[in-house]
């Protein structure tokens, strides 16, 4: 029981931590943006008039929700070179994370679209709006209201999930904890530091979500 908590031993590694935290942040941000785009595509596929397209969209969601991210990352990292595409650790992590998150994004967006009543489309169409205008001015603002909270949860989920990129040899915060811990034998300290980084990232998202939400959706603005 002679363990004493001291950060001094791991001070020299804080420079690497900065770089790792930047990797975590950029990987997460890119994956979130890209998976919203891919998720939107899948959500629209699930509303297609064509049955095979609908089924393909549904199958995508089921596969992504029922397969571990780690296995998807390994597939991207190991399979891509065999298909002739050489991906860096960052790119492999980004592709895997995006593919996986898009399955969840698609469901979030689909729920948002379902929540817009058909009468809203009809009212907008009957005013002569083009499809793009209907989406932009009537549908999107309402979808955004519905998906706002779950979207925030998914952003946090992606930040946490980005830690698995350590498995495809990306230097991010979890791998910083592991490598620095094993070279300094200061695992307690590296754990605390890594936990603080993630806590700060996730709680910033949380607090920003609440503050922005209060600004965007005052009472009475709800459907």
């Amino acid at each position: 029981m002679g363990y004493s908590f001291t950060l001094r031993t791991i001070y020299p590694y804080f420079g690497d931590l900065w770089q790792s935290a930047l990797n975590t942040l950029s990987l997460s941000l890119l994956a979130i943006v890209l998976s919203i785009a891919l998720g939107a595509l899948v959500a629209l596929m699930r509303r297609s008039a064509l049955r095979p397209v609908r089924l393909l969209g549904a199958a995508y969601v089921e596969v992504m929700r029922n397969t571990p991210l780690l296995v998807i990352l390994y597939l991207v990292y190991f399979a891509a070179p065999e298909a002739g595409v050489r991906l860096s650790s960052f790119m492999a992590a980004l592709v895997g994370l995006t593919l996986n998150s898009a399955g969840y994004m698609a469901e979030i967006l689909r729920a948002g679209l379902i929540a817009v009543p058909p009468g809203q489309f009809e009212a907008a169409q009957s005013q002569g709006m083009s499809s793009a205008q209907v989406l932009r001015h009537v549908v999107f603002p309402q979808v955004f209201r519905t998906i706002y909270a779950p979207l925030g949860n998914q952003v946090i989920a992606v930040i946490l999930a980005s830690s698995l990129a350590t498995a495809v040899a990306l230097d991010e915060v979890a791998s910083w904890m592991q490598t620095v811990g094993s070279s300094s034998f200061r695992f307690f300290e590296t754990f605390v530091v890594a936990a603080v980084v993630y806590l700060v990232l996730c709680q910033s998202v949380n607090i920003a979500r609440i503050l922005i939400g209060r600004k965007l959706f005052p009472q009475g603005r709800r459907a």
Partner: peptide, 25 residues
């Protein structure tokens, strides 16, 4: 609850496997 929902399970796993043995011998 907030703590465990705001940190990745992987670092908990690292801590349990590498850290706890050092801490508690």
């Amino acid at each position: 609850m907030e703590f465990f929902r705001s940190i990745p399970i992987l670092i908990v796993l690292f801590f349990a496997f590498y850290g706890v043995p050092l801490l508690l011998e």
